[in-house]
């Protein structure tokens, strides 16, 4: 019966390091091999670009010409240039407005409003509303932006038809408002879904006790609902801020125009670095963007930590 065992006793005795909690007998070396390809790809194409930005941002790298072949170290020149350039500040300001109105206010409020109003509905109306909002989120960005170009068209756009404002060039007269509404349309699904699940977790008994003492809808919202979903509101706000800050999709609608009126930071970087060819300067602005992202992400980590601790 022992013939089933093929390994000679000698080799079995040879000490082998095995971890106590290594159920599959992987061993550290093999585990390393398993993890390596993924980590290499992440390292090369995610981590390294971030670090590389620091170096790139301190050179006069250009896409073409002499500086493409032998870029020179220029220290903080790019940062000085960016920070003294009014168009950078303009872009930052536009970004702030964009994030504030389309993300923090628009998506959050409308997302909450939708979640709130479909909460007690069942059946096809609920599916239809949720489906439409979700569909806007899911369809590819280039399709979404085309649909809005159609909708807002100057001569025969549906919006002008509905509002009786034939001939209004929304994208030229009100470019920022247009991309804000466009971005609300694209992104509200996330807030809606997040708040839907948050609202369904609010204990009905709390709402009912508020109703029993005669609280109005508004008072219920303020005294019961909001305190219960405070964490979700914060999470939602931070994630939405991060994503809205980083979105490039408005470029597909207005391409930053007219006259840079919708040149939010992501578009500004693109215009500077790729068509503009100033990779060094673009990298310097990218680094600023990365740092802002870092701050938002760290705030998010802090918030979610605090929440899990409680």
């Amino acid at each position: 019966m022992t013939t089933t065992v093929t390994t000679p006793a000698g080799s079995a005795i040879a000490p082998r390091r095995r971890r106590a909690d290594d159920v599959a007998g992987l061993g550290k070396a093999r585990a390393g091999i398993f993890v390596a390809p993924a980590l290499i790809i992440i390292g090369l194409f995610l981590l390294f670009p971030a670090v590389w930005t620091i170096w790139l941002g301190s050179t006069d790298y250009r896409l073409t010409g002499l500086q493409a072949a032998s870029p020179e170290f220029v220290g903080l020149d790019n940062y000085v240039e960016a920070l003294t350039d009014p168009s950078f500040w303009n872009s930052l300001w536009l970004t702030l407005i964009f994030v504030l109105f389309s993300g923090i206010i628009g998506q959050t409020l409308i997302g909450f409003g939708l979640a709130w109003s479909v909460r007690n509905i069942h059946g096809w109306t609920k599916s239809l509303i949720e489906g439409l909002v979700l569909a806007a989120w899911v369809i590819p960005a280039s399709v979404a932006s085309f649909l809005w170009l159609v909708l807002l068209d100057r001569r025969s756009g549906t919006v002008n038809g509905l509002l009786g404002t034939q001939g209004t060039a929304w994208l030229i007269d009100h470019p920022m408002e247009s991309i804000i509404i466009f971005n609300i349309w694209v992104g509200t699904a996330f807030s809606m879904q997040l708040f839907s699940s948050a609202l369904s977790a609010v204990p009905p008994s709390q709402i009912e006790s508020a109703k029993m003492v005669g609280a109005s809808g508004w008072q219920q919202l303020r005294d019961v609902i909001v305190p219960n979903i405070k964490g979700h509101i914060l999470t939602n706000t931070l994630l939405i801020t991060l994503w809205t800050f980083n979105t490039f999709t408005p470029y597909l609608v207005t391409a930053g125009g007219p006259n840079g009126k919708t040149e939010i930071l992501s578009v500004y970087i693109y215009e500077t670095a790729i068509p503009g060819g100033q990779l060094g300067l673009g990298a310097a602005i990218s680094l600023i963007m990365l740092l802002i992202n870092l701050v938002i992400a760290l705030a998010y980590v802090r918030v979610s930590r605090g929440r899990t601790k409680r």
Partner: peptide
Amino acid sequence: RIRIPGRDGILYGLLLLSSIVTGTAAMVPT
């Protein structure tokens, strides 16, 4: 399956990294 020291830290670090280094923010170096 293997307890690498600081594993959870690495995991969260990676997730954080991927939300910071977005396509737009890293488009130039990439």
